[in-house]
Write a protein that binds this DNA or RNA. Structure first.
Length: 489
RNA sequence: GCCCCCAUCGUCUAGAGGCCUAGGACAACAGCCUUUCACGCUGCCAACAGGGAUUCGAAUUCCCUUGGGGGUACCA
Protein backbone atom coordinates (compact mmCIF):
# COMPACT_ATOMS: atom_id res chain seq x y z
CA UNK A 1 0.00 0.00 0.00
CA UNK A 2 1.54 3.24 -1.09
CA UNK A 3 1.17 6.53 0.65
CA UNK A 4 -1.95 8.52 -0.10
CA UNK A 5 -1.22 11.33 -2.50
CA UNK A 6 -1.95 14.79 -1.18
CA UNK A 7 -1.63 17.96 -3.21
CA UNK A 8 -2.53 21.52 -2.39
CA UNK A 9 -3.34 24.79 -4.02
CA UNK A 10 -2.05 27.68 -1.96
CA UNK A 11 -3.05 31.06 -3.32
CA UNK A 12 -2.54 34.30 -1.50
CA UNK A 13 -5.63 36.46 -1.10
CA UNK A 14 -4.42 39.47 -3.03
CA UNK A 15 -7.31 39.75 -5.46
CA UNK A 16 -9.10 37.65 -8.02
CA UNK A 17 -7.44 34.45 -9.11
CA UNK A 18 -5.28 34.69 -12.17
CA UNK A 19 -5.84 32.15 -14.95
CA UNK A 20 -2.28 31.01 -14.42
CA UNK A 21 -3.06 30.23 -10.81
CA UNK A 22 -6.13 28.39 -11.91
CA UNK A 23 -4.08 26.30 -14.27
CA UNK A 24 -1.82 25.39 -11.36
CA UNK A 25 -4.82 24.61 -9.19
CA UNK A 26 -6.30 22.50 -11.97
CA UNK A 27 -3.17 20.41 -12.43
CA UNK A 28 -2.78 19.87 -8.69
CA UNK A 29 -6.45 18.96 -8.49
CA UNK A 30 -6.28 16.62 -11.48
CA UNK A 31 -3.22 14.91 -10.11
CA UNK A 32 -4.95 14.32 -6.80
CA UNK A 33 -8.18 13.16 -8.40
CA UNK A 34 -6.43 10.92 -10.89
CA UNK A 35 -4.59 9.21 -8.08
CA UNK A 36 -7.50 9.02 -5.70
CA UNK A 37 -5.66 11.44 -3.47
CA UNK A 38 -6.58 14.48 -1.44
CA UNK A 39 -6.70 18.04 -2.67
CA UNK A 40 -6.11 20.76 -0.09
CA UNK A 41 -6.87 24.45 -0.34
CA UNK A 42 -4.68 26.63 1.81
CA UNK A 43 -4.70 30.39 2.04
CA UNK A 44 -1.27 31.98 2.17
CA UNK A 45 -1.94 35.34 3.72
CA UNK A 46 1.44 36.00 5.23
CA UNK A 47 1.86 39.36 3.60
CA UNK A 48 -0.30 41.63 5.69
CA UNK A 49 0.33 44.55 3.36
CA UNK A 50 -1.02 42.85 0.26
CA UNK A 51 -4.10 41.30 1.76
CA UNK A 52 -7.31 42.20 -0.05
CA UNK A 53 -10.67 42.26 1.67
CA UNK A 54 -12.98 39.53 0.45
CA UNK A 55 -10.33 37.75 -1.56
CA UNK A 56 -10.53 34.56 0.46
CA UNK A 57 -14.20 34.28 -0.38
CA UNK A 58 -13.59 35.21 -4.00
CA UNK A 59 -11.01 32.46 -4.37
CA UNK A 60 -13.45 29.90 -3.09
CA UNK A 61 -16.21 31.19 -5.29
CA UNK A 62 -14.08 30.93 -8.40
CA UNK A 63 -12.94 27.43 -7.56
CA UNK A 64 -16.52 26.38 -6.95
CA UNK A 65 -17.58 27.93 -10.21
CA UNK A 66 -15.00 25.78 -11.94
CA UNK A 67 -16.10 22.81 -9.89
CA UNK A 68 -12.62 22.32 -8.49
CA UNK A 69 -13.57 20.90 -5.14
CA UNK A 70 -11.18 20.68 -2.24
CA UNK A 71 -11.22 17.96 0.39
CA UNK A 72 -9.62 20.04 3.08
CA UNK A 73 -9.44 23.77 3.50
CA UNK A 74 -11.57 26.79 4.27
CA UNK A 75 -15.28 26.05 4.54
CA UNK A 76 -14.76 22.30 4.66
CA UNK A 77 -12.17 21.98 7.41
CA UNK A 78 -9.95 18.95 7.79
CA UNK A 79 -7.73 17.35 10.33
CA UNK A 80 -4.73 19.56 9.61
CA UNK A 81 -6.52 22.87 9.98
CA UNK A 82 -6.72 25.74 10.21
CA UNK A 83 -5.98 26.21 6.53
CA UNK A 84 -5.33 29.91 6.69
CA UNK A 85 -1.75 30.76 7.46
CA UNK A 86 -2.43 33.85 9.51
CA UNK A 87 -4.15 31.48 11.94
CA UNK A 88 -1.08 29.29 12.20
CA UNK A 89 1.50 31.89 13.16
CA UNK A 90 2.55 29.95 16.25
CA UNK A 91 3.75 27.04 14.12
CA UNK A 92 6.09 29.20 12.09
CA UNK A 93 7.44 30.95 15.10
CA UNK A 94 8.16 27.62 16.75
CA UNK A 95 9.90 26.40 13.61
CA UNK A 96 12.03 29.52 13.45
CA UNK A 97 12.97 29.12 17.08
CA UNK A 98 13.88 25.52 16.57
CA UNK A 99 16.16 26.44 13.69
CA UNK A 100 17.69 29.23 15.69
CA UNK A 101 18.30 26.92 18.62
CA UNK A 102 20.02 24.30 16.50
CA UNK A 103 22.14 26.90 14.72
CA UNK A 104 20.49 26.39 11.34
CA UNK A 105 19.21 29.94 11.26
CA UNK A 106 20.32 33.30 12.57
CA UNK A 107 19.01 36.71 13.39
CA UNK A 108 19.78 39.44 10.89
CA UNK A 109 19.79 43.07 11.88
CA UNK A 110 20.58 44.61 8.52
CA UNK A 111 18.54 47.64 7.55
CA UNK A 112 16.62 47.87 4.31
CA UNK A 113 18.97 50.59 3.31
CA UNK A 114 22.08 48.49 3.76
CA UNK A 115 20.51 45.69 1.74
CA UNK A 116 19.67 48.00 -1.08
CA UNK A 117 23.17 49.37 -1.23
CA UNK A 118 24.54 45.87 -1.19
CA UNK A 119 22.37 44.82 -4.13
CA UNK A 120 23.37 47.85 -6.10
CA UNK A 121 27.02 47.14 -5.44
CA UNK A 122 26.68 43.51 -6.46
CA UNK A 123 24.96 44.40 -9.66
CA UNK A 124 27.47 47.07 -10.53
CA UNK A 125 30.41 44.77 -9.95
CA UNK A 126 28.86 41.80 -11.72
CA UNK A 127 28.84 39.79 -8.55
CA UNK A 128 26.35 37.04 -7.86
CA UNK A 129 23.30 38.42 -6.13
CA UNK A 130 22.11 37.51 -2.67
CA UNK A 131 22.43 38.54 0.91
CA UNK A 132 26.08 38.91 1.86
CA UNK A 133 25.58 37.07 5.13
CA UNK A 134 26.76 40.04 7.11
CA UNK A 135 24.93 38.96 10.27
CA UNK A 136 25.53 35.26 9.89
CA UNK A 137 28.48 35.07 12.22
CA UNK A 138 27.75 37.81 14.69
CA UNK A 139 29.21 37.24 18.16
CA UNK A 140 27.11 37.21 21.30
CA UNK A 141 28.30 40.71 22.10
CA UNK A 142 27.55 42.09 18.68
CA UNK A 143 24.09 40.66 18.78
CA UNK A 144 23.47 42.04 22.25
CA UNK A 145 24.58 45.41 20.99
CA UNK A 146 22.14 45.34 18.06
CA UNK A 147 19.34 44.28 20.35
CA UNK A 148 20.17 47.14 22.65
CA UNK A 149 19.85 49.50 19.69
CA UNK A 150 16.27 48.37 19.47
CA UNK A 151 16.51 46.71 16.08
CA UNK A 152 13.92 44.01 15.51
CA UNK A 153 15.75 41.30 13.60
CA UNK A 154 14.53 38.99 10.89
CA UNK A 155 15.44 35.33 10.94
CA UNK A 156 17.45 33.97 8.05
CA UNK A 157 18.27 30.43 7.05
CA UNK A 158 21.91 29.45 7.29
CA UNK A 159 22.29 27.83 3.89
CA UNK A 160 25.08 25.45 3.01
CA UNK A 161 28.20 27.22 1.77
CA UNK A 162 29.48 24.44 -0.41
CA UNK A 163 28.33 21.44 -2.32
CA UNK A 164 25.26 21.39 -4.46
CA UNK A 165 21.57 20.77 -4.15
CA UNK A 166 19.67 18.78 -6.70
CA UNK A 167 15.97 19.13 -7.32
CA UNK A 168 14.43 15.93 -8.58
CA UNK A 169 11.58 17.52 -10.43
CA UNK A 170 8.85 15.34 -11.86
CA UNK A 171 8.63 17.52 -14.91
CA UNK A 172 12.13 18.94 -15.37
CA UNK A 173 14.21 16.04 -14.21
CA UNK A 174 17.26 16.76 -12.06
CA UNK A 175 18.20 20.40 -11.74
CA UNK A 176 21.46 21.23 -10.03
CA UNK A 177 22.21 24.35 -8.02
CA UNK A 178 25.51 25.35 -6.47
CA UNK A 179 24.90 25.83 -2.77
CA UNK A 180 27.08 28.90 -2.43
CA UNK A 181 24.70 30.70 -4.74
CA UNK A 182 21.69 29.87 -2.63
CA UNK A 183 20.78 32.89 -0.61
CA UNK A 184 20.26 33.02 3.15
CA UNK A 185 16.58 33.67 2.72
CA UNK A 186 14.48 35.45 5.28
CA UNK A 187 12.28 33.01 7.18
CA UNK A 188 10.62 35.25 9.68
CA UNK A 189 9.94 38.89 9.00
CA UNK A 190 10.33 41.59 11.57
CA UNK A 191 6.57 41.87 11.89
CA UNK A 192 6.50 38.32 13.18
CA UNK A 193 4.96 36.88 10.05
CA UNK A 194 6.76 34.11 8.21
CA UNK A 195 7.80 34.47 4.61
CA UNK A 196 6.35 32.17 1.99
CA UNK A 197 9.44 30.00 2.26
CA UNK A 198 9.05 29.12 5.91
CA UNK A 199 5.27 28.95 6.04
CA UNK A 200 5.16 26.82 2.95
CA UNK A 201 7.60 24.24 4.22
CA UNK A 202 6.07 24.02 7.66
CA UNK A 203 2.54 23.70 6.32
CA UNK A 204 3.34 21.31 3.52
CA UNK A 205 4.98 19.11 6.09
CA UNK A 206 2.26 19.42 8.71
CA UNK A 207 -0.45 18.88 6.12
CA UNK A 208 1.42 15.89 4.77
CA UNK A 209 1.59 17.18 1.25
CA UNK A 210 3.29 14.57 -0.90
CA UNK A 211 3.51 16.48 -4.17
CA UNK A 212 4.26 20.15 -4.42
CA UNK A 213 2.77 21.24 -7.72
CA UNK A 214 3.40 24.90 -8.37
CA UNK A 215 4.52 27.33 -11.05
CA UNK A 216 7.96 27.43 -12.59
CA UNK A 217 8.74 30.74 -10.94
CA UNK A 218 9.35 28.81 -7.72
CA UNK A 219 12.06 26.71 -9.25
CA UNK A 220 14.89 28.97 -8.18
CA UNK A 221 13.92 29.08 -4.54
CA UNK A 222 13.46 25.34 -4.34
CA UNK A 223 17.07 24.56 -3.34
CA UNK A 224 16.57 26.79 -0.37
CA UNK A 225 13.33 24.99 0.42
CA UNK A 226 15.09 21.66 0.29
CA UNK A 227 17.69 22.91 2.75
CA UNK A 228 14.87 24.07 4.95
CA UNK A 229 13.17 20.69 4.87
CA UNK A 230 16.46 19.09 5.80
CA UNK A 231 17.18 21.54 8.58
CA UNK A 232 13.74 20.92 10.03
CA UNK A 233 14.23 17.20 9.75
CA UNK A 234 11.31 16.91 7.38
CA UNK A 235 11.04 14.52 4.48
CA UNK A 236 11.33 16.39 1.18
CA UNK A 237 8.17 16.11 -0.90
CA UNK A 238 8.09 15.52 -4.64
CA UNK A 239 8.23 18.62 -6.77
CA UNK A 240 6.54 19.35 -10.05
CA UNK A 241 7.06 22.81 -11.46
CA UNK A 242 4.59 23.81 -14.13
CA UNK A 243 5.67 25.82 -17.18
CA UNK A 244 4.72 29.47 -17.23
CA UNK A 245 1.71 30.99 -18.90
CA UNK A 246 2.72 33.87 -21.13
CA UNK A 247 0.93 36.79 -22.72
CA UNK A 248 0.92 37.45 -26.44
CA UNK A 249 4.25 39.28 -26.19
CA UNK A 250 5.87 36.30 -24.47
CA UNK A 251 6.20 37.96 -21.12
CA UNK A 252 4.60 36.68 -17.95
CA UNK A 253 0.86 36.86 -18.45
CA UNK A 254 -0.32 40.02 -16.75
CA UNK A 255 -2.77 42.85 -16.83
CA UNK A 256 -1.25 44.25 -20.00
CA UNK A 257 -2.58 41.25 -21.89
CA UNK A 258 -6.25 41.97 -21.32
CA UNK A 259 -8.26 39.63 -19.17
CA UNK A 260 -6.19 37.64 -16.77
CA UNK A 261 -8.42 36.88 -13.83
CA UNK A 262 -10.73 33.94 -14.04
CA UNK A 263 -13.53 36.20 -12.87
CA UNK A 264 -13.19 38.32 -15.96
CA UNK A 265 -13.59 35.31 -18.19
CA UNK A 266 -16.63 34.30 -16.23
CA UNK A 267 -18.13 37.74 -16.66
CA UNK A 268 -17.38 37.69 -20.34
CA UNK A 269 -19.52 34.63 -20.68
CA UNK A 270 -17.04 31.81 -20.89
CA UNK A 271 -18.30 28.53 -19.50
CA UNK A 272 -16.44 26.88 -16.65
CA UNK A 273 -16.14 23.68 -18.65
CA UNK A 274 -14.45 25.63 -21.43
CA UNK A 275 -11.96 27.15 -19.04
CA UNK A 276 -11.09 23.77 -17.57
CA UNK A 277 -10.63 22.16 -20.96
CA UNK A 278 -8.67 25.07 -22.36
CA UNK A 279 -6.39 25.48 -19.37
CA UNK A 280 -5.74 21.77 -19.19
CA UNK A 281 -4.36 21.90 -22.70
CA UNK A 282 -1.95 24.67 -21.81
CA UNK A 283 1.04 22.60 -20.91
CA UNK A 284 -0.56 19.19 -21.03
CA UNK A 285 -1.87 17.06 -23.84
CA UNK A 286 -3.52 13.71 -24.08
CA UNK A 287 -2.28 12.75 -27.52
CA UNK A 288 -1.79 14.14 -30.99
CA UNK A 289 -5.41 15.06 -31.66
CA UNK A 290 -7.63 15.51 -28.65
CA UNK A 291 -8.92 19.05 -28.21
CA UNK A 292 -12.30 18.71 -26.57
CA UNK A 293 -12.01 16.58 -23.49
CA UNK A 294 -14.39 16.15 -20.60
CA UNK A 295 -13.56 16.65 -16.97
CA UNK A 296 -13.96 12.92 -16.42
CA UNK A 297 -11.50 12.05 -19.16
CA UNK A 298 -9.12 14.66 -17.86
CA UNK A 299 -9.15 12.98 -14.47
CA UNK A 300 -8.86 9.59 -16.04
CA UNK A 301 -5.88 10.42 -18.22
CA UNK A 302 -4.01 13.20 -16.47
CA UNK A 303 -0.38 12.60 -15.73
CA UNK A 304 2.59 14.76 -14.89
CA UNK A 305 4.67 12.88 -17.45
CA UNK A 306 2.71 14.53 -20.22
CA UNK A 307 3.22 18.04 -18.92
CA UNK A 308 5.49 20.00 -21.19
CA UNK A 309 8.40 22.18 -20.15
CA UNK A 310 7.76 24.95 -22.59
CA UNK A 311 6.02 28.11 -21.50
CA UNK A 312 2.69 28.57 -23.24
CA UNK A 313 1.03 31.64 -24.64
CA UNK A 314 -2.58 32.15 -23.73
CA UNK A 315 -4.46 32.04 -27.03
CA UNK A 316 -7.72 33.95 -26.82
CA UNK A 317 -8.95 32.92 -30.27
CA UNK A 318 -8.75 29.28 -29.48
CA UNK A 319 -10.48 29.84 -26.17
CA UNK A 320 -13.31 31.56 -27.98
CA UNK A 321 -13.62 28.78 -30.48
CA UNK A 322 -13.70 26.24 -27.69
CA UNK A 323 -16.36 28.15 -25.82
CA UNK A 324 -18.51 28.09 -28.94
CA UNK A 325 -18.06 24.36 -29.09
CA UNK A 326 -19.19 23.94 -25.52
CA UNK A 327 -22.12 26.28 -25.88
CA UNK A 328 -23.42 24.40 -28.88
CA UNK A 329 -23.02 21.14 -27.04
CA UNK A 330 -25.18 22.29 -24.15
CA UNK A 331 -28.78 21.11 -24.00
CA UNK A 332 -31.21 23.79 -25.09
CA UNK A 333 -32.69 24.29 -21.65
CA UNK A 334 -29.29 24.34 -20.02
CA UNK A 335 -28.05 27.00 -22.37
CA UNK A 336 -31.21 28.96 -21.69
CA UNK A 337 -30.50 28.92 -17.98
CA UNK A 338 -26.96 30.05 -18.47
CA UNK A 339 -27.87 32.78 -20.90
CA UNK A 340 -30.67 34.29 -18.81
CA UNK A 341 -28.51 36.13 -16.29
CA UNK A 342 -26.37 37.55 -19.05
CA UNK A 343 -29.43 38.88 -20.83
CA UNK A 344 -30.88 40.30 -17.66
CA UNK A 345 -27.64 42.06 -17.06
CA UNK A 346 -26.50 42.94 -20.56
CA UNK A 347 -29.63 44.02 -22.40
CA UNK A 348 -30.29 47.76 -22.71
CA UNK A 349 -31.76 49.34 -19.60
CA UNK A 350 -35.01 50.41 -21.25
CA UNK A 351 -36.08 46.81 -21.72
CA UNK A 352 -38.47 45.64 -19.04
CA UNK A 353 -37.28 43.18 -16.46
CA UNK A 354 -37.65 40.45 -15.56
CA UNK A 355 -37.44 38.97 -19.01
CA UNK A 356 -40.00 36.45 -20.17
CA UNK A 357 -38.20 33.13 -20.07
CA UNK A 358 -40.63 31.62 -22.52
CA UNK A 359 -39.77 34.27 -25.04
CA UNK A 360 -36.04 33.76 -24.47
CA UNK A 361 -36.55 30.03 -24.83
CA UNK A 362 -37.61 30.64 -28.43
CA UNK A 363 -34.69 32.91 -29.09
CA UNK A 364 -31.91 30.68 -27.79
CA UNK A 365 -32.00 28.15 -30.62
CA UNK A 366 -31.78 30.97 -33.12
CA UNK A 367 -28.68 32.53 -31.65
CA UNK A 368 -26.74 29.59 -30.30
CA UNK A 369 -24.75 29.00 -33.47
CA UNK A 370 -24.01 32.66 -33.82
CA UNK A 371 -22.48 33.60 -30.52
CA UNK A 372 -19.33 32.37 -28.89
CA UNK A 373 -19.81 33.64 -25.35
CA UNK A 374 -22.86 33.99 -23.13
CA UNK A 375 -22.27 37.69 -23.02
CA UNK A 376 -22.54 37.90 -26.79
CA UNK A 377 -26.17 36.90 -26.44
CA UNK A 378 -27.12 40.30 -25.07
CA UNK A 379 -25.67 42.27 -27.95
CA UNK A 380 -26.65 39.77 -30.57
CA UNK A 381 -30.25 39.36 -29.47
CA UNK A 382 -31.12 42.84 -28.29
CA UNK A 383 -33.35 43.48 -31.31
CA UNK A 384 -35.70 40.79 -30.10
CA UNK A 385 -36.49 42.89 -27.07
CA UNK A 386 -36.26 46.49 -28.16
CA UNK A 387 -39.43 48.47 -28.79
CA UNK A 388 -37.99 50.92 -31.26
CA UNK A 389 -35.26 49.95 -33.65
CA UNK A 390 -32.88 52.42 -35.11
CA UNK A 391 -32.51 52.04 -38.84
CA UNK A 392 -29.66 53.10 -40.96
CA UNK A 393 -31.30 53.57 -44.34
CA UNK A 394 -28.08 52.52 -46.04
CA UNK A 395 -28.74 49.01 -44.86
CA UNK A 396 -31.83 48.63 -46.99
CA UNK A 397 -29.93 49.28 -50.13
CA UNK A 398 -27.71 46.27 -50.40
CA UNK A 399 -26.17 44.64 -53.41
CA UNK A 400 -28.05 45.21 -56.65
CA UNK A 401 -30.71 47.00 -54.68
CA UNK A 402 -32.17 50.45 -54.84
CA UNK A 403 -34.29 52.25 -52.30
CA UNK A 404 -37.22 51.91 -54.69
CA UNK A 405 -37.08 48.13 -54.90
CA UNK A 406 -36.69 47.91 -51.16
CA UNK A 407 -39.67 50.14 -50.65
CA UNK A 408 -41.72 48.19 -53.13
CA UNK A 409 -40.74 44.89 -51.61
CA UNK A 410 -41.52 45.96 -48.06
CA UNK A 411 -44.83 47.43 -49.07
CA UNK A 412 -45.88 44.24 -50.77
CA UNK A 413 -44.68 42.16 -47.86
CA UNK A 414 -46.61 44.27 -45.43
CA UNK A 415 -49.83 43.67 -47.29
CA UNK A 416 -49.31 39.95 -47.54
CA UNK A 417 -48.31 39.62 -43.92
CA UNK A 418 -51.20 41.66 -42.63
CA UNK A 419 -53.51 39.14 -44.16
CA UNK A 420 -51.63 36.20 -42.75
CA UNK A 421 -53.40 34.36 -39.94
CA UNK A 422 -50.75 32.00 -38.76
CA UNK A 423 -47.34 33.47 -38.30
CA UNK A 424 -44.99 30.50 -38.33
CA UNK A 425 -41.77 29.72 -40.07
CA UNK A 426 -43.64 27.53 -42.53
CA UNK A 427 -46.45 29.93 -43.30
CA UNK A 428 -44.06 32.84 -43.62
CA UNK A 429 -41.88 31.04 -46.05
CA UNK A 430 -44.89 29.83 -48.03
CA UNK A 431 -46.11 33.38 -48.28
CA UNK A 432 -42.93 35.31 -48.86
CA UNK A 433 -40.97 33.09 -51.19
CA UNK A 434 -43.57 33.24 -53.97
CA UNK A 435 -43.97 36.94 -53.37
CA UNK A 436 -40.48 37.60 -54.67
CA UNK A 437 -41.40 35.95 -57.90
CA UNK A 438 -44.62 37.88 -58.14
CA UNK A 439 -42.70 41.10 -57.73
CA UNK A 440 -40.16 40.04 -60.28
CA UNK A 441 -37.24 40.27 -57.87
CA UNK A 442 -34.86 37.75 -56.43
CA UNK A 443 -35.67 36.25 -53.08
CA UNK A 444 -32.67 37.97 -51.59
CA UNK A 445 -33.99 41.30 -52.75
CA UNK A 446 -37.09 40.72 -50.72
CA UNK A 447 -35.59 38.93 -47.76
CA UNK A 448 -32.78 41.35 -47.15
CA UNK A 449 -34.87 44.50 -46.72
CA UNK A 450 -37.29 42.47 -44.68
CA UNK A 451 -34.49 41.33 -42.43
CA UNK A 452 -33.28 44.85 -41.97
CA UNK A 453 -36.81 46.04 -41.28
CA UNK A 454 -37.52 43.44 -38.63
CA UNK A 455 -34.11 43.32 -36.97
CA UNK A 456 -32.27 46.50 -37.96
CA UNK A 457 -29.32 44.23 -38.55
CA UNK A 458 -27.55 42.98 -41.61
CA UNK A 459 -26.55 39.86 -39.78
CA UNK A 460 -29.34 38.09 -37.97
CA UNK A 461 -30.76 34.61 -37.49
CA UNK A 462 -32.74 33.05 -40.36
CA UNK A 463 -35.52 35.40 -41.37
CA UNK A 464 -38.64 33.28 -41.09
CA UNK A 465 -37.74 31.82 -37.75
CA UNK A 466 -36.84 35.23 -36.46
CA UNK A 467 -40.11 36.73 -37.65
CA UNK A 468 -42.08 33.89 -36.19
CA UNK A 469 -40.50 34.50 -32.81
CA UNK A 470 -41.02 38.23 -33.04
CA UNK A 471 -44.67 37.68 -33.86
CA UNK A 472 -47.01 39.29 -36.31
CA UNK A 473 -47.71 42.45 -34.41
CA UNK A 474 -44.09 43.32 -33.77
CA UNK A 475 -43.07 42.50 -37.32
CA UNK A 476 -45.75 44.64 -38.90
CA UNK A 477 -44.98 47.51 -36.61
CA UNK A 478 -41.32 47.33 -37.54
CA UNK A 479 -42.02 47.06 -41.23
CA UNK A 480 -44.19 50.16 -41.02
CA UNK A 481 -41.44 52.00 -39.20
CA UNK A 482 -38.96 50.92 -41.84
CA UNK A 483 -41.28 52.03 -44.58
CA UNK A 484 -41.58 55.43 -42.97
CA UNK A 485 -37.86 55.66 -42.67
CA UNK A 486 -37.34 54.70 -46.31
CA UNK A 487 -40.04 57.02 -47.60
CA UNK A 488 -38.53 59.86 -45.66
CA UNK A 489 -35.30 59.57 -47.58
C1' G B 1 25.13 41.55 -14.08
C1' C B 2 24.55 36.63 -11.62
C1' C B 3 21.73 31.79 -11.20
C1' C B 4 18.27 28.28 -13.37
C1' C B 5 15.39 26.72 -17.39
C1' C B 6 13.31 26.36 -22.33
C1' A B 7 13.59 26.06 -27.95
C1' U B 8 8.66 21.82 -33.77
C1' C B 9 3.80 25.88 -38.22
C1' G B 10 1.72 33.03 -36.17
C1' U B 11 -0.49 30.27 -31.50
C1' C B 12 -1.56 25.50 -28.47
C1' U B 13 0.70 20.99 -29.38
C1' A B 14 1.97 15.35 -31.24
C1' G B 15 6.69 13.43 -31.93
C1' A B 16 10.93 9.81 -26.56
C1' G B 17 16.98 7.45 -33.55
C1' G B 18 14.41 4.89 -38.84
C1' C B 19 6.63 4.72 -38.75
C1' C B 20 8.25 12.17 -40.49
C1' U B 21 8.06 13.99 -48.07
C1' A B 22 6.84 16.11 -39.41
C1' G B 23 0.48 14.72 -37.42
C1' G B 24 -3.84 17.39 -34.97
C1' A B 25 -6.27 22.06 -33.36
C1' C B 26 -6.97 27.60 -33.38
C1' A B 27 -6.11 31.56 -36.62
C1' A B 28 -5.43 32.98 -41.96
C1' C B 29 -6.74 31.99 -46.93
C1' A B 30 -9.88 29.54 -50.97
C1' G B 31 -14.32 27.00 -51.82
C1' C B 32 -19.03 24.34 -50.73
C1' C B 33 -23.72 24.93 -48.11
C1' U B 34 -27.07 29.30 -47.89
C1' U B 35 -32.35 34.54 -47.68
C1' U B 36 -27.91 37.66 -44.32
C1' C B 37 -24.64 36.16 -40.43
C1' A B 38 -23.06 32.00 -38.31
C1' C B 39 -22.63 26.67 -37.80
C1' G B 40 -20.96 22.64 -40.66
C1' C B 41 -17.98 20.56 -44.56
C1' U B 42 -13.76 20.51 -48.14
C1' G B 43 -9.19 22.25 -49.61
C1' C B 44 -4.84 25.22 -48.82
C1' C B 45 -0.70 28.16 -46.57
C1' A B 46 2.60 27.23 -42.61
C1' A B 47 7.50 24.69 -38.36
C1' C B 48 11.93 20.93 -36.50
C1' A B 49 16.36 28.66 -34.46
C1' G B 50 21.75 28.22 -36.39
C1' G B 51 26.38 25.49 -36.29
C1' G B 52 29.19 21.36 -35.01
C1' A B 53 29.50 16.13 -33.03
C1' U B 54 27.67 10.86 -32.36
C1' U B 55 25.27 7.30 -35.74
C1' C B 56 24.37 3.37 -41.47
C1' G B 57 20.45 6.91 -40.11
C1' A B 58 18.62 12.58 -35.91
C1' A B 59 13.04 16.91 -34.88
C1' U B 60 14.45 13.11 -31.52
C1' U B 61 21.40 12.13 -28.16
C1' C B 62 25.80 15.56 -26.89
C1' C B 63 28.37 20.46 -27.31
C1' C B 64 28.47 25.63 -28.76
C1' U B 65 25.96 30.00 -30.52
C1' U B 66 21.59 32.68 -30.81
C1' G B 67 16.81 33.68 -29.12
C1' G B 68 13.18 33.49 -25.22
C1' G B 69 11.47 32.90 -20.17
C1' G B 70 11.84 32.72 -14.80
C1' G B 71 14.43 34.08 -10.36
C1' U B 72 17.56 37.54 -8.15
C1' A B 73 12.34 41.35 -1.92
C1' C B 74 11.37 41.50 5.54
C1' C B 75 5.81 39.49 -2.29
C1' A B 76 3.77 35.22 -3.00
Amino acid sequence: MTQQIRTRFAPSPTGFLHVGSIRTALFAWLFARHNGGVFVLRIEDTDATRKVEGAVEAIQEDLRWLNLDWDEGPAVGGKFGPYIQSERLGNYKAAAEKLLAQGAAYKCYCSQERLENMREFQNKNKLPSGYDRCCRDLTEDERAQKEKEGITPVVRLKTALQGQTVIHDLIWGDVVFQNNLVEDLVLLKSDGYPTYHLANIVDDHDMEITHVIRAEEWMSSTPCHIMLYNAMGYAVPQFAHLPMLLGSDRSKLGKRHGSTSIRQFREQGYLPETMINFLALLGWSLDDKTEIISREDLIKHFSLERVSKTAAIFNHEKLQWMNGQYMRKLAQEELLNRVMPFLEKGLPAEINRPLDINYVRQIVPLIRERISTLKDAATYASFFFLDELEYDSEMFVGNKMTAETALKALKAAEEKLSALESFTQGSLEATLRPLAGDLGIKTGQLFNPLRVATTAREAAPPLFETMAVLGKERCLKRIKAALAKLAGN
